[in-house]
Amino acid sequence: MPRQNVYMKQKTIDGIRQIVDMRREEGATASDANISSVCSEMLELGMRVYLNAKNKKASDAEAGEDVFQSALFEEVVKSRMASQEILALMFSLQDIKSDSRNNYDKLIDSLKEKTDLRVKKVLNRE
């Protein structure tokens, strides 16, 4: 194993010595319970705790983003459904049907083209 010098507070080294003494009292040999092995174990445990906490924060952030995206998607779908219903109602009126300037199919095609252009512009896909 690689060797590394680490500076610790006196309180920390006293706690590590206590753990070493407890393990030796429980029957561990000097090679099993020594300052180096206990420090290595504590560092590994601390690293796992740190990484788990960091991953939890990242997953919490992703969960919040998922909630936002779900809410946004729900609102977009509602808006689309309402728009479709309004257009269907408008074009079912006899006055609008009889006016040759209004064409439902052309309007839908025009809306699709304008939407594609807008999405490309916003997402810089031009």
Rank of each mutant, 00 (worst) to 15 (best):
M1T: 15
R3A: 13
Q4W: 01
Q4G: 07
Q4H: 11
N5E: 15
N5P: 04
V6Y: 13
M8C: 00
M8Y: 03
K11G: 02
I13G: 06
D14N: 15
G15C: 00
R17T: 12
Q18V: 02
Q18L: 10
Q18E: 15
V20H: 00
M22N: 14
M22Y: 09
R23A: 11
R24A: 09
R24G: 06
E26A: 14
E26G: 10
E26Y: 07
E26M: 14
G27A: 11
G27F: 04
G27E: 13
G27V: 04
A28L: 03
T29G: 14
D32F: 06
D32Q: 15
N34S: 00
N34I: 05
N34G: 06
S37N: 11
S37T: 07
V38A: 03
V38M: 08
C39T: 14
C39W: 01
S40A: 13
E41F: 08
E41W: 09
E44S: 10
L45T: 06
L45Y: 15
G46E: 03
M47Y: 09
R48S: 01
R48Q: 01
R48G: 01
R48P: 00
V49S: 09
Y50G: 01
Y50R: 11
A53Y: 06
K54P: 00
K57P: 05
S59R: 11
S59E: 15
S59C: 09
S59T: 14
S59Y: 11
S59W: 06
A61Y: 08
E62R: 02
A63Q: 07
G64K: 15
E65C: 00
E65H: 05
V67T: 09
F73A: 15
E74P: 07
E74A: 15
E75H: 04
E75Y: 10
V76L: 12
V76E: 08
V77K: 14
K78G: 12
S79A: 12
M81Y: 07
A82R: 08
S83D: 03
Q84N: 12
Q84V: 04
Q84E: 10
L87E: 11
A88R: 09
A88H: 04
L89D: 15
M90D: 00
M90I: 11
D95K: 07
I96D: 01
N102Q: 03
N102Y: 14
N103Q: 05
N103E: 03
Y104T: 07
L107A: 01
I108M: 13
I108K: 11
I108L: 14
D109V: 05
D109A: 08
L111H: 13
L111V: 13
K112P: 02
K114W: 03
D116C: 02
D116E: 09
L117N: 13
R118S: 05
V119K: 08
V122M: 02
N124D: 06
N124I: 03
R125I: 13
R125E: 04
E126Q: 12
E126G: 13
